[in-house]
Structure formats: C-alpha cells, structure tokens
Design a protein around this nucleic acid. Structure first.
Length: 287
DNA sequence: TTCTTTGTTCCGGA
DNA sequence: GTCCGGAACAAAGA
C-alpha cells in the first residue's frame, strides 16, 4: 500500500543511510519486474555515488553524477536494510509489517558503508529505471503527474478548473495522478471520510466550502501519516515484526459494517466498489 | 476454486 | 481529441 506518506518515509530513511555512499555491488535475482531490468543496469551503477535522493509523488529518485535512477514500489515493493546477513532482516528493517519471503527478494544493493539494501516485491509491479541525467520533467512518468498535494498550486481554483468539464466521481478524481499526485485508495477513502463527502459524488458537484475542506484534509492526513511513520522509524525495535503503524489510524478504510468512528455520528460504514476499487464510507455523515 | 487486494498503463466506447 | 472506466499484470490469503 505504498502511497505518498510511505514513500516519503522510505525516502527519509534512505537519505539518512545512503547519501554520499557508493554502490559497490548489485545482485539481481529476478529481472522481470514491471519493466525488465536491462543487462547493463548493474554496470552503470556500480562505483557511482548517491548524491541526492528525492521523491515525486510515489516515485523515488536517486541522483548520481551522470545518471538518475527512478524507482517505483508498485503495489507491494519494499526496500529493506540489512547490515550483516538476511537473518537480521527483521531486526534492522525500517519498513512496516514485514513478513518477507526470501523468494521475493529481487535485487540486492551493497554500499561502501557496509549496508545492504534489499528490494522485495511480492507482486513485481514495482520498477527501477535508469536515465542519462535527463531533466526530471522530461521523464515520461513524471511529466504526467499533477501537483504534489502539499504544494500551493493544489488549491480551490485549481480544483474548480480541473473538474468543471468532467463527470468523474470524487473518489476517482483523488486517485487520478494527473489531478493530484501521490494519493492511492486508502488515503482517498480517509480524506473523503474526514471531509464528510460521499465517494460517489460527482467532483463537479462539490461547493467551494467542501473543496476547501477536502484539500485541507488531504494535506493534513498525509502529513499526519508521515509524522506517525517517521516517529516509528526512530525506534527500530518497535517496527520489527510488529503490525503496521499506519492502519492503526484508519477511520474508515476496512471498517465495513462497523459503526462510524465519528463520535457524534450513529451511521454505519459501507463498502462498495468504485471503478473496481474498494470504497468505504459512512451512510450518515458523508453526504 | 474463486474472490480480493495494491498502482499504473493500455485500450475501447462514448 | 478527450474523458471515463474496465482489463490486465502477480501472488497470496481468505
């Protein structure tokens, strides 16, 4: 479920551990990720120093002197550090809810500071792509992206302009990466619940009060999640083998048939499919 | 055995 | 040309 907050948390950890380190070895067990990893991949990266690591939407961007490595975790990709050997993986990993099978360890990166980074991906929808120092906005994947949710350009006027000639449902709009980038199924459900807006509403039908509320809540909930995840990273022992930290804060996702978690509301949470994705909403306070 | 889950791209129909 | 949403992709757990 890596959406923007999870990727941001991964990025922060990577920055802490890998800036100015050199890749000294790469082992690829399975090249068939979403896009096949070409044979020259390792050769192009070995000996290169990581100068900068950034995030755009759900993409991780590693900057080298002459190359840019673009990474996407897909649906189930995880980056996990291990210092000594794989048996220690559960003790040193910073990611959440780890239950990693070795057979899904597809890539190993070894660094000159002794760290080893493992890319584990059950569904193999993630990818790693190398670019020749192109400008970031020339990369196809990034070109199509809408504004970051935290940016000032993600505002009432932008929302109104984008939706005025569209028929799309608000739930789908929030997950449309060309509208706003980084929100997936979970946070779209949560943001709509928080804003008391029903997921099936036409995005065009929202009034300016609702739009402002929704935009503010999106920014709030993403920041809150980053904060929570970030604080759990500090204590590695707490993350080891423990259930995910994010789902503890879900107010509507996965809560079908339960009572609405809003104290002042007596409604019930329903689960429906919207464009093939599970959508949860309260029949009483979300209108 | 079948359904569900995740993000993105591709493609058909309106 | 644009917009919308279904299908496909992989694998595992219920």
């Amino acid at each position: 479920m890596p959406e923007l907050p999870e990727i941001e948390i991964i990025k922060k950890s990577l920055v802490k551990m890998l800036i100015n380190t050199k890749i000294i070895k790469i082992k690829i067990n399975n090249r068939n990720l979403r896009y096949k990893i070409p044979p020259q991949f390792s050769k192009n990266l070995i000996g290169q120093k990581i100068l900068k690591i950034s995030r755009r939407s759900k993409y991780l961007i590693f900057h080298f002197k002459k190359k840019i490595l673009l990474a996407h975790m897909g649906m189930s990709g995880k980056l996990v550090f291990t210092k000594l050997n794989e048996k220690k993986i559960y003790k040193t990993s910073f990611y959440y809810n780890l239950n990693l099978l070795k057979k899904h360890n597809h890539i190993y990166f070894k660094f000159n500071n002794g760290l080893k980074l493992i890319y584990n991906d059950v569904r193999r929808f993630g990818f790693f792509k190398l670019y020749n120092n192109e400008k970031l906005n020339k990369i196809n994947f990034l070109k199509k992206l809408g504004p970051e949710p935290f940016s000032k350009s993600f505002n009432l006027i932008y929302f109104t302009n984008f939706t005025k000639n569209r028929e799309t449902k608000i739930k789908n709009l929030l997950m449309d990466q060309s509208f706003v980038s980084g929100i997936g199924n979970i946070y779209s459900n949560e943001a709509l619940f928080m804003s008391k807006i029903a997921p099936l509403r036409k995005s065009r039908s929202l009034n300016s009060v609702e739009i402002k509320r929704l935009i503010l809540n999106i920014k709030k909930i993403l920041k809150f999640s980053i904060l929570k995840g970030g604080s759990s990273i500090k204590d590695f022992k707490n993350t080891a083998g423990k259930k995910g930290v994010f789902q503890e804060f879900f107010n509507v996702y996965g809560r079908n048939n339960k009572k609405c978690s809003r104290i002042s509301c007596n409604g019930k949470i329903y689960k429906i499919k919207i464009s093939g994705r599970s959508s949860y909403y309260c029949d009483s306070c979300q209108t």
